[in-house]
Write a protein that binds this DNA or RNA. Sequence first.
DNA 1: CTAACCTACATGCAAACGCATCTAACTTCT
DNA 2: AGAAGTTAGATGCGTTTGCATGTAGGTTAG
Lengths: 149, 149
Amino acid sequence: MSSRTRLANEAWEALLGAHAELMRRFAAAELWQEISMREYDVLYSLARAERPLSLVELNRHVLLSQPALSRMVERLADRGLIHRERSSDDGRSVRLSLSARGAELQRRVGLAHGREVGVALSDRLDRGELEDLARLCRRLSSEPARVAA
Amino acid sequence: MSSRTRLANEAWEALLGAHAELMRRFAAAELWQEISMREYDVLYSLARAERPLSLVELNRHVLLSQPALSRMVERLADRGLIHRERSSDDGRSVRLSLSARGAELQRRVGLAHGREVGVALSDRLDRGELEDLARLCRRLSSEPARVAA
DNA sequence: CTAACCTACATGCAAACGCATCTAACTTCT
DNA sequence: AGAAGTTAGATGCGTTTGCATGTAGGTTAG
């Protein structure tokens, strides 16, 4: 195993550890009574993307299987938090967007959650480090590093 | 919302994105036939910690509820991958450790998985960046930044 | 000593998940 | 245009999860 591979594995393990610990911490908040963190993730993804998303598009942001997301979307629609209508362009596809209630809930929960995120990370990293972390993580999730053919 | 808080939230979102995308990629490997990624996480945690761990200790590394972990441990023990014995010191506690079969499986799967992790991260970050990422993430998951009283 | 409390783990149960598969709507190729 | 192939989403079903709670061992205080 090359030293580069070792470094990569250490970085991945560190990232997993940070993810797990912070998720635990955020999940402990008395904030997820109305919606779970996973449901919030769906609302947040829809809020971010001004235009309606299809299930497949939404699924790129939400770490769930397609069937699980399909059912979660159904539950959120039943609760009146999101709109789900069949696309006119493509009869297979659905157009998912926040309802007014869903948008309000997302804003309200997002505000409180965002404060906690801010505290948790700012406590441990300064501005420059936060920027570095964001940059490095974005590099990991952006388009694949395609090799020239 | 202060700019520091905004930076923290951007960093957290970037970290979540990287986590989700890489998890997806790793999960797609034809490698998780014998054990799931979550089960591997348990075996890996036990492999790391040379001494036997209690459920509570193990639970610090594994992002699952205590009851869910308790049952996963039960399944892994039933499959002969880990040993579970009552602690002599503390009659409430269990001592969890890898069996020979579990250790072998962890090594085998870990080797292949580690290669994938290496490729995925090394493709996008150089040595210095991998070190930076590891350092920043460890800062996020190490002991709380206690404020002097 | 023992009653009250706390901690570690297990268990009942409903909700949610993933896998396999289905249906229906596009797309492509001849 | 029609058959074959692909893609979007939904559904059946067994497994796994989390919440609430139970049980038992250990600790503390009167």
